[in-house]
Every structure is written in structure tokens, then in C-alpha cells.
Design a protein around this nucleic acid. Structure first.
Length: 420
DNA sequence: TCTGGGGTCCTAGGACCC
DNA sequence: TCTGGGGTCCTAGGACCC
């Protein structure tokens, strides 16, 4: 039996935690570079503001009451997220952290002690008390049904934020009332195709023939169908599998036209990606760089390209990764374009750097590499300041815009809220 | 002027092998 | 003139998720 716990309007709610003056006010959070709206408070949704709307379009409109806007403050969200997850870890036998604001909880043994619904309310109350955040809880025999139970808990206020869908009759009653596009794993394209086949509710999908689904779609959707029928196909993944790839990419604060600026940005992304790689205790062989102009600009010719390098020996040394990335950049850079976005991707991971050293390997092992990288990472995590390689420059005029950033209330001493 | 960032999984098709 | 069948591996692209 699974419970899906997720925080209501997570980013927007985080912004409100330290701003009691915003209680009941509409607020939105915009993505990196202040690009588009990625989180809305309940009040903002009621004003008809839409998720994903570009910020510049939003600004052109007017609303009956003032809408407060925040740039994404990931340091704040990550910290509040870990507090929520810690509470769940303390209360439940096992949890799977599914995303920054969601966790699946194993509640199989709980019914011996208390009702599942009561347990849901307990988790909800504890999180509200300790963090000020409100969660929804959906309980069901499969992950896909737990997701739907959670949807119901959010959607119908009479539920008090907790829905237990153990009972088969209740499952079918809910499924009949939920449009198929709300099902986990059913996106825009699949919805369109299902609708064309006359399947428009979750119940119709649950009752569809496995054979037909497999024939017209694939095994993934077929698994979803079985989960909707109450047959568990997905387990709780308590231990996060090691990553297959690491990406660091950003849109620029302004369009880049000079090679030197792009070179700086790629250095910065490569260094950040290497830091993440070391955080995973991994080494990589595959390093790839991509860049692109704006796909939205009608009066410019689009250019996007990608180049990659495969090293002989796995590495997690920033210097190797920066060198491979800048070399790849040289192969795809073209003058005369206005670049909007670029990124660095690492893949082909190994758990140690001890690979066979190739006879012709020009990438000689570096002395003290691990010690130097450890030192850099620990300085950068100490809060006392940052050090970085010179290649990313000092000015960073290309850096993303975050003009409406809230303070790092919980992770920076200078930003600690003061109670008077 | 201005449209996020970071992931996973699956499939089709090509290259190559015997 | 006539050109099989079966397998693996890799990659690009599509679809989904938050």
C-alpha cells in the first residue's frame, strides 16, 4: 500500500512561509531567467493565471488584485524540501523521494496500528506544524492510483487533504470522474490519441484491453492500465539509483554573440557539472556540449548543434571536463548567431577513476587530483566564499536574470528572518 | 526585447556481424 | 540475372515526469 504525499503549490508556498503578510494574496514564481510561470498560489490560480505562461505576457495583463512575483529560489526550496522529507522518514517505515516536493511512502504495515486515513492526517499535521507547508495525501494499492487519490485530495476540499482509495468501489467511482489526461504517464500526445479512440476518462482507460493498448501504444502505458486496475507494477524505490547523466544548462540573461562570452559560460557549466558528478561519487567518460539560438525568433535563422568527446579514462577532475567541453565548443561555434542557451552534459559513468590506462592515452593521470577537487568543493560548501577556475570570467554578463529573488531565509546567515 | 532546467525510459532504424 | 535470416549494439528522437 502506497501513500503519495506532495506539497501544495510547493515553490509558491515556500515563498509564503517567511512572509505572513502574503497570506491570502496571489503569488507566482517564475523560472530561471525570469522566463515563465512555474508555480502559483491558490489565489493566483483563481485569477485565471496559467502554469507555463511566459512572464513577459503575464506582465502585459492586469488583474483585479496585485500579484506578487518571485524568481526561483532553489536554495530555499531545497532546504524546505529536505525538512519535509525528514519528517516523513521519521514517521514512516520507508519512503521514496520522487521529486523536490513529492514522496511515495510505504504504508503497508500501518493498518495494524491505525487507519490509513488517520495516518495520512498525522503526516499532514506534523508537516504543517514543523514547516508551515500544507501537503495532500493519496493512499492506494498502486502508485498510479495513489497519484489519483492525491489529485482527489487536492481537488475536493471536503476530503480534508487526505484520500484513502483502498476500497475497490471507491477506486472505480473516482476513476469515472477523472479525465484521462490526469493519469500519471498520460501526457498531451497520448491523451489526444486516446480521445480519438473514445477513451476520455481514467475508468475507460482502466477498462481498455491490454492487448489494444500495447498494440497502439507501448508497454509503459499498458503497465499504467494494470496499475489503474489495482495491480501493482511499480515498487517503492527506496534507494535512488545512480544517475545516468548530468546536465548543466541555462538560458542566458542576454543573447550571446561573442565567442569569449560563450567560452566563459561553457567553462562555468562544465565546472558545475563536474561538481555535481563528484557529489554523486562518479567519474565520466562522455562529455557533450550543446548550444542553440532562440527557436521562437521568427526573423532569425535557427542554429542548434551539439558536439561530444569520449575520454579514454573516466574523470571527475574539473580541469579535464572543462578542457573537453571547451574543445567541443570550438567544433560547433559559429559566428553571426545570437545564442539563447547552451549546456554541458556528462554521461557514461564509472564508480571509480581506476580504468585501464590505455597505452596511447594522452590523458595522463593527474597527481593529487582528488585532493584538489575535494578542497575546492569543501571551500565552496563552507559558506565562506567561492572559488572557481578563471575560464568562466569574473563579470559573467551572460548570467541569468533573477530580478525578483527572495532571501535565502534558511541557508544564509545574513538572510535569517528576525522576529521582533 | 522577453518562452526553465533536469531527468528517465522506450522505440525505430542503421551499421555491422556471421 | 539472381542477393537470407537472425542477431547485437548504438543513436536519435519521441514521450513522459516534476
Amino acid at each position: 500500500m502506497f501513500a503519495l504525499v506532495d506539497v501544495n503549490s510547493f515553490y509558491a508556498s515556500c515563498e509564503k512561509v517567511f512572509r505572513p503578510d502574503l497570506k491570502g494574496k496571489p503569488i507566482v514564481v517564475v523560472s530561471n531567467n525570469d522566463g515563465c510561470i512555474i508555480s502559483l498560489s491558490r489565489e493566483a490560480k483563481q485569477l485565471g493565471i496559467k502554469m507555463g505562461e511566459p512572464y513577459f505576457k503575464f506582465k502585459e495583463k492586469s488583474y483585479p488584485s496585485r500579484v506578487y512575483v518571485f524568481s526561483s529560489n532553489y536554495a530555499l526550496y531545497a532546504d524546505l524540501s529536505s525538512r519535509v522529507m525528514q519528517i516523513l522518514t521519521d514517521l514512516a517505515p520507508a519512503i521514496e523521494i520522487y521529486s523536490i516536493d513529492e514522496a511515495f511512502v510505504n504504508v503497508s504495515g500501518v493498518s495494524h496500528c491505525m487507519s490509513l486515513e488517520a495516518f495520512g492526517r498525522q503526516m499532514r499535521a506534523q508537516i504543517l506544524k514543523n514547516t508551515g507547508l500544507t501537503v495532500g495525501v493519496g493512499i492506494a494499492p498502486t502508485k498510479t492510483l495513489a497519484k489519483l487519490a492525491n489529485y482527489a485530495a487536492k481537488r475536493w476540499s471536503g476530503t480534508g487533504g487526505v484520500v484513502d482509495l483502498s476500497d475497490r468501489e471507491r477506486q472505480r467511482k473516482l476513476l469515472a470522474n477523472v479525465p484521462v489526461d490526469e493519469v500519471w504517464g498520460v501526457g498531451r500526445r497520448i491523451t489526444k490519441k486516446l480521445n480519438a479512440m473514445g477513451i476520455s476518462t481514467a475508468l475507460a482507460l482502466a477498462d481498455a484491453s491490454s492487448w489494444v493498448i500495447c498494440k497502439h501504444f507501448n508497454v509503459v502505458l499498458e503497465r499504467t492500465v494494470r496499475e489503474l486496475r489495482g495491480e501493482p507494477c511499480l515498487d517503492l524505490e527506496e534507494f535512488t539509483p545512480t544517475k545516468q547523466q548530468i546536465i548543466c544548462s541555462r538560458s542566458f540573461g542576454h543573447r550571446i554573440t561573442q565567442y569569449e562570452e560563450m567560452h566563459q559560460a561553457i567553462c562555468a557549466y562544465a565546472e558545475r557539472a563536474a561538481e555535481k558528478l563528484r557529489g554523486e561519487h562518479q567519474y565520466c567518460r562522455f562529455i557533450s556540449v550543446f548550444l542553440r539560438t532562440s527557436p521562437h525568433a521568427d526573423n532569425e535563422i535557427y542554429y542548434g548543434n551539439q558536439a561530444s568527446t569520449i575520454l579514454m579514462t573516466p574523470t571527475n577532475d574539473s580541469r579535464d571536463i572543462i578542457r573537453a567541453a571547451t574543445e567541443a565548443l570550438g567544433r560547433i561555434w559559429l559566428d553571426g548567431y545570437r545564442y539563447m542557451k547552451a549546456g554541458v552534459m556528462l554521461a557514461d559513468f564509472f564508480s571509480t577513476g581506476v580504468a585501464q590506462l590505455n597505452l596511447f592515452d594522452d590523458n595522463r593521470l593527474r597527481v593529487n587530483s582528488a585532493a584538489l577537487m575535494d578542497m575546492i568543493d569543501s571551500v565552496n560548501h563552507s559558506g565562506k566564499g567561492k572559488i572557481w577556475f578563471a575560464g568562466q570570467g569574473i563579470e559573467k554578463s551572460w548570467a541569468m536574470k533573477r530580478e525578483m529573488l527572495s532571501p535565502a531565509y534558511t541557508t544564509r546567515y545574513a538572510d535569517l528572518p528576525v522576529a521582533r
